[in-house]
Design a protein around this nucleic acid. Sequence first.
DNA 1: ACCTGAACACCGTTCAAGT
DNA 2: ACCTGAACACCGTTCAAGT
Lengths: 220, 220
Amino acid sequence: MPPRPRAPRNTLSRELVVDTALRMLDEGGIEAFGVRALAKELGVGPMTLYTYFRGKEELLDAVRGQLLDTASLTCLHGDWQHRVRTICQRLRQLILDHPCLIHLLSTRPPSGRDAADAAEALLRTLTEAGFDEETAARTYTMLLGHVLGVTSLEVQLAAEHEDPDRRRHIRDTMTGLDPKRHPALVAHTAALRRTAGGDAQFEFGLELIIAGLERHTVLK
Amino acid sequence: MPPRPRAPRNTLSRELVVDTALRMLDEGGIEAFGVRALAKELGVGPMTLYTYFRGKEELLDAVRGQLLDTASLTCLHGDWQHRVRTICQRLRQLILDHPCLIHLLSTRPPSGRDAADAAEALLRTLTEAGFDEETAARTYTMLLGHVLGVTSLEVQLAAEHEDPDRRRHIRDTMTGLDPKRHPALVAHTAALRRTAGGDAQFEFGLELIIAGLERHTVLK
DNA sequence: ACCTGAACACCGTTCAAGT
DNA sequence: ACCTGAACACCGTTCAAGT
């Protein structure tokens, strides 16, 4: 990254800082990101950023908020199964597009405000489908945790797949397993590698949950 | 923490270093943990630790491995529903006992080796219950992601609950929601706060998944 | 092998100051 | 208000050296 030419005076703004931070996070990941590096990218001293943000934490919060606000995480047409499916898929896609979100969300959980549109759509959908208040709330929390967890796993596995050192390491540990102690695990090594990650794995889990929810509605 | 009296020569070991690191992580969390602080706690110069570990990352990996190896994440009695339930609950409990695990697991996903006993028990259980290889593998991955995600959310919410500043902040943002734009979310605020976290929330999700799996078996 | 202090190349942030 | 350089109190780690 060439250190940008110094920005002319008064061209900096909260928005520009956040956008640049997001771009750096998308390109280099959370490890490569720092206040100093961001300042250099903007052609500015590190302290300049403190005019717009109280500190690094507040800056990252702003990035997170921007990602969640900009995204369209709603779906209010079709039956409730379709809505739930679509909203969850959109949240997953947002994370796949911006893997830094995992870190930003796991440092501090999404408060109501952050993903308000998704929460609204899900809660309204579930209520209209006939779930009582408490079940709707529980289902919302469960779905959120599920999508974050499964997608997080997916992103990490993809990242490991990139690093040749790690790939070899995983290979070695898997082949080093004792077939006497872990016969089922050894037998499933290929299946695990074959199925891990991807749309199919995500949708498998999602459909399983929807199937469970359907049984809930039938029991009413 | 009083800086321990210098350890007598040759009393240090990989094991002691890992145990002390784990204790510090349990007490102060991942943010308070550092190579220098750990060394001080052991009454030793920071560089001493590099005799036992290549670096911080390898050290944290060892802590993670110890936690997962020591824990009993198996259950091979009762019907498959009971086994799945028990294994998932044990993994959750391990994370609740050692919240640092979330960070240790989200930096790098559990490879086969790490939670081999849990994987073995789950895969064997699912296979014996009649699921084919691919479905068993997918279910394993899905359950792992689910437990990690939901429990991670739970731990974070609990942590936020501790911090009075954050509590007030959440309160403010929730009450600041526009009832026109987010009527369902506003209506569910109380239910969300009432149900969030705890055994009940976790088991709600788990039973939902098990119900979905049962439908899978019925369809066969 | 085990352990050391000094030093290096970084962090995020405080401070006093300049426009 | 916007922006600055110098400095502070930290990091994890390399290095050359000591037992």
